[in-house]
């Protein structure tokens, strides 16, 4: 009966407000008996021709924008990072790992958010440093919070997940997402300890690629900071001899070089030191001893002397 009443209403609506180009054959009941059912106001703006039944009329609302209904078009997953964080750098030393990342989230070339913390402690035993898309970083951050809570239920005293476990988990997550063509646009470093209690440092990127090294850097840092860190820590043996102070100095030096030469960097940064005692995270470090005095001696681009 609902169909019958619908048809009744439709007939009367056609009578009142006939759509343009309507074919007489499409409205067989055009001159049927008068219907007393009150009209729904929307019906005047709906198309009632059978081939486009009951949708908003183009001459009232404009052509339908098909991009709103992409049921079988290309997927609209993250196609490119939007708000981004630049390098994360880290170096192993004899008792743990030092990691640093500046507090900037860029919007293209605009230094848009200047107080974004990109180092995230996990269970006071590991640190994850994120570069790349900030919304994906925040997604992973929430995901890790959930993980930490459920882990704390199972093992309240001692964290079960070492940094090595955490790295493997995140790498699998990233690889799964890249295989779905819906990547999390991040390159991240995980620092802490492995299951044998040795300092652990490894990287994972949006493709699910993983690698480990005594010193690691993402993005610009892999080109500017890695050579400096490798000069101090060429291999695992050197990392086992490095003191905490030396490691922090190396990382600070690298942050300075990155600020000089990376146009998407900031002079305020976070620094985390992971040791057996836990994670010490400082989020308001500032670059010191920058060298700009030489600049006033440079004039012109060649022959200019004044």
């Amino acid at each position: 009966s609902s169909i019958a009443s619908f048809q009744r209403r439709q007939t009367s609506s056609d009578k009142r407000h006939e759509p343009p180009h309507s074919h007489p054959a499409n409205n067989p009941a055009q001159d049927s008996a008068v219907d007393s059912t009150p009209l729904h106001t929307l019906q005047n703006t709906m198309d009632h021709r059978p081939q486009a039944w009951g949708r908003p009329r183009d001459d009232v609302y404009g052509a339908y924008d098909a991009s709103f209904m992409n049921s079988n078009g290309p997927k609209q997953n993250t196609q490119q990072p939007i708000v981004t964080g630049t390098s994360v750098i880290a170096v192993k030393f004899k008792d743990g790992v030092v990691m640093a990342a500046d507090n900037l989230a860029s919007y293209g070339s605009l230094a848009r958010f200047t107080d974004v913390k990109r180092l995230r402690p996990f269970a006071n035993s590991s640190v994850v440093g994120f570069s790349g898309d900030v919304s994906d970083m925040q997604y992973l951050d929430r995901h890790l919070t959930d993980l930490a809570i459920s882990e704390a239920y199972d093992s309240p005293e001692q964290p079960r997940l070492s940094a090595a476990n955490l790295h493997r988990y995140l790498a699998k997550l990233l690889y799964r997402r890249r295989s779905k063509f819906d990547p999390l646009w991040n390159h991240l470093l995980v620092a802490g300890f492995d299951d044998a209690g040795e300092p652990f440092l490894a990287a994972a990127d949006l493709l699910g690629s993983t690698y480990s090294s005594p010193s690691l850097a993402t993005g610009f840092g892999s080109m500017l900071a890695q050579p400096i860190m490798r000069r101090h820590v060429p291999d695992e043996e050197a990392a086992r001899k490095l003191s905490r102070e030396q490691a922090v100095d190396i990382v600070k030096e690298c942050m300075k070089v990155l600020y000089y030469r990376d146009a998407r960097s900031l002079d305020q940064y976070s620094l985390a030191v992971v040791t057996k005692d836990g994670v010490e995270l400082k989020t308001d470090e500032k670059l010191e001893n920058q060298s700009w005095a030489f600049a006033e001696r440079i004039k012109g681009y060649g022959t200019q002397t004044v």
Binding site: P20, A52, A66, S67, S71, N72, G73, Q76
Partner: peptide, 28 residues
């Protein structure tokens, strides 16, 4: 009523477009 779409206006297969109106490809 929308000759540009060349059909009954239900082109659900229309993909995401760039600002120039070109089809945007996967960049990943």
């Amino acid at each position: 009523q929308n000759p540009v779409m060349n059909g009954p206006n239900y082109s659900f297969s229309d993909g995401p477009k760039t600002n120039n109106g070109e089809l945007r490809e996967h960049r990943f």
